[in-house]
């Protein structure tokens, strides 16, 4: 590079010039980002909704996604709130109704610390048999080939644990009678136990622990609000009605 400048430091350009150029670039940057967000955001929302929908229907077997209805709620000790906007991320309970309007199951989320990071699951709960009827892993960064989403979900023997996992409540509906428990591979004896994957014990335990915490917290609440949850709300408009505490 041949520069015909005498001093090694080139003369300082005026601040105005610098500000002008930076402003120009920033303007361009802002404009393009806004444009991109404008065009992609609806697509992204749509896709995330679809992914959630798929997961929800996966954990509640026996419903046809075409005719089924899914209602999102936010449930905590304060009460039950129906949510219209699914993508808001506040929903922690998805009630699924089959074509005839009967409650087919409730999808709930579980999370617990695994080997690397939190293992997040979504599971289906059937209030009628008081059991877990399906499970899918939303996120697991545990050892690929042992505790990751694909490996765990491909392990049929392990996934069979969650076809009928008992989470019966005690008589006063205050807590789960036998909390979900993960046991060493091949030693499952009770119907509330989860038979761990041999070689991925920590991931299996995290899944079991996530279920235990989530069921322990939410199932008594669901039992209280089961009346509201098991009906399809009539009005399709934004309701967001606060259900009073019993």
């Amino acid at each position: 590079m041949t520069m015909e400048v005498k001093s090694p430091v080139p003369p300082m350009p005026s601040s105005m010039a610098m500000i002008r150029v930076l402003a120009l670039i920033a303007l361009f940057a802002g404009l393009s980002v806004v444009l991109v967000v404008h065009f992609t955001d609806p697509v992204i929302r749509e896709k995330e909704l679809q992914a959630l929908e798929q997961a929800v229907f996966k954990v509640i077997p026996g419903v046809e996604p075409e005719s089924a209805v899914r209602i999102s709620y936010s449930l905590n000790a304060k009460g039950l709130v129906r949510l219209e906007d699914d993508a808001a991320g506040a929903a922690n309970l998805f009630a699924v109704f089959d074509g005839s309007g009967k409650l087919a199951g409730i999808a709930l989320q579980g999370a617990a610390q695994g080997y690397q990071d939190v293992v997040r699951t979504l599971y289906g709960y059937d209030p009628e048999c008081e059991c877990i009827i399906g499970l899918t892993i939303m996120k697991s960064t545990d050892t690929p080939g042992m505790g990751d989403k694909h490996t765990v979900e491909a392990n049929h023997a392990f996934m069979d644990n969650f076809r009928h996992l008992s989470v019966k409540l005690t008589a006063d509906k205050g807590s789960v009678a036998h909390p979900v428990e993960t046991v060493k591979h091949g030693t499952k004896t009770e119907e509330w136990q989860v038979d761990a994957i041999s070689g991925a014990t920590i991931t299996s335990r995290a899944i079991g622990k996530g279920l235990r915490q989530s069921t322990g917290e939410l199932l008594p609440l669901i039992a209280r609000h089961l009346q509201e949850i098991s009906k399809i709300p009539r009005n399709k408009e934004k309701s967001g009605t606060e259900v009073k505490k019993r």
């Binding site: 080139p10 300082m12 350009p13 010039a17 610098m18 150029v21 930076l22 120009l24 670039i25 920033a26 361009f28 940057a29 393009s32 980002v33 991109v36 967000v37 992609t40 955001d41 992204i44």
Partner: peptide
Amino acid sequence: LIPKQVRIASYIVIIATFVTIVDY
């Protein structure tokens, strides 16, 4: 157009813009 003194800042803003586009 870009003055030498602010070139790295300019480059990074430009690159970050395209990265954001690609991200979305």
